[in-house]
C-alpha cells in the first residue's frame, strides 16, 4: 500500500494527498473527501435549493473528481477544481429537475434590480440575537433563496466559502468583472431584504411586527 510516504489527517499536505490519490491511493482520496465534503454540500444546496439533489451532487462530484484526477493539472488549487465540478453537477441537477430546460448561472441575472438601497435604516447592534436559532436560519434561508442563482452562487463562493474573486471566476466560468458586479448586487440585495428583520426598533419591548 502506498500510504507509507503520505501523512494523513489535518496536517497532510494537500498536493501530496492529490498525488497519492492520482496514483490510486483510496485513503488519500478519502482524506480529500473529509476535507471538503461539507463545503461541496453547502455549495450544492445553495445552487439546487434541494437537499436530496445536494446529496447526489456531493456523491457525483467526488466520483467525477476521482475519475478525472489524471486530468487535474495542478495549476489551480484542488479545491477550486473540485468546486468547478460540483457547480457543474449542481447545474445539471437543476436542468434535470426542470425537465431538460437549459440552466445557466446567467438566468434571471438581468431581471429586476433591487440592489439599489431603499432601506437605509440602521440595524440593531446584535441582529443575530433578535431571533432564536431556528427563526434566524429560516430568515437567512428564505432571503438567500430569493436571489437569482447567478448571484447566489457568487455570494456563496466568495463570502461563505471564502474563495478569492479569481477562484470564483474560474469555478463559475465567469469573468472577474462579472464576479465583482454580481457580488456587489448580491450583497446589496441581501442587505436590503434583511433590513426588514434586523432594523433597529423604536420600542424594544415585544417589538416583532411582521
Amino acid at each position: 500500500m502506498a500510504t507509507d510516504t503520505i501523512k494523513t489527517g489535518e496536517a497532510a499536505d494537500e498536493l501530496s494527498l492529490v498525488r497519492a490519490a492520482k496514483a490510486g491511493n483510496i485513503e488519500a482520496f478519502e482524506q480529500l473527501i473529509r476535507r471538503y465534503d461539507r463545503n461541496v454540500f453547502r455549495i450544492a444546496q445553495h445552487i439546487t435549493q434541494n437537499r436530496e439533489d445536494a446529496e447526489d451532487v456531493v456523491q457525483d462530484a467526488f466520483l467525477k473528481a476521482f475519475q478525472n484526477l489524471a486530468g487535474f493539472q495542478e495549476q489551480s488549487k484542488f479545491y477550486t477544481w473540485l468546486v468547478r465540478i460540483a457547480v457543474n453537477e449542481a447545474l445539471m441537477k437543476l436542468r434535470r429537475r426542470r425537465t431538460g430546460k437549459l440552466v445557466s448561472l446567467d438566468e434571471d441575472v438581468q431581471t429586476e434590480d433591487d440592489s439599489v438601497p431603499r432601506e437605509v435604516a440602521d440595524w440593531s447592534p446584535n441582529p443575530e440575537q433578535l431571533y432564536n436559532r431556528a427563526e434566524l436560519k429560516e430568515i437567512l434561508d428564505k432571503t438567500i433563496q430569493g436571489l437569482p442563482p447567478g448571484f447566489r452562487s457568487v455570494f456563496v463562493l466568495r463570502d461563505v466559502e471564502g474563495l478569492s474573486t479569481e477562484e470564483t471566476a474560474e469555478a463559475l466560468d465567469l469573468s472577474i468583472p462579472a464576479v465583482k458586479s454580481r457580488l456587489l448586487r448580491a450583497r446589496l440585495q441581501l442587505r436590503n431584504r434583511l433590513t426588514k428583520f434586523f432594523r433597529q426598533r423604536q420600542q424594544p419591548e415585544n417589538g416583532r411586527n411582521n
Binding site: R42, V58, K137, R187
Partner: peptide
C-alpha cells in the same frame, strides 16, 4: 455609512450561519 455597515453585517451573518450543515 449605514449601508456599508449593514452590508458588512450581512456578510458576517451568512458567514457565521450554519445554514446547510451536513
Amino acid at each position: 455609512f449605514v449601508i456599508c455597515n449593514t452590508t458588512q453585517m450581512t456578510i458576517q451573518i451568512y458567514r457565521n450561519s450554519e445554514l446547510y450543515e451536513l
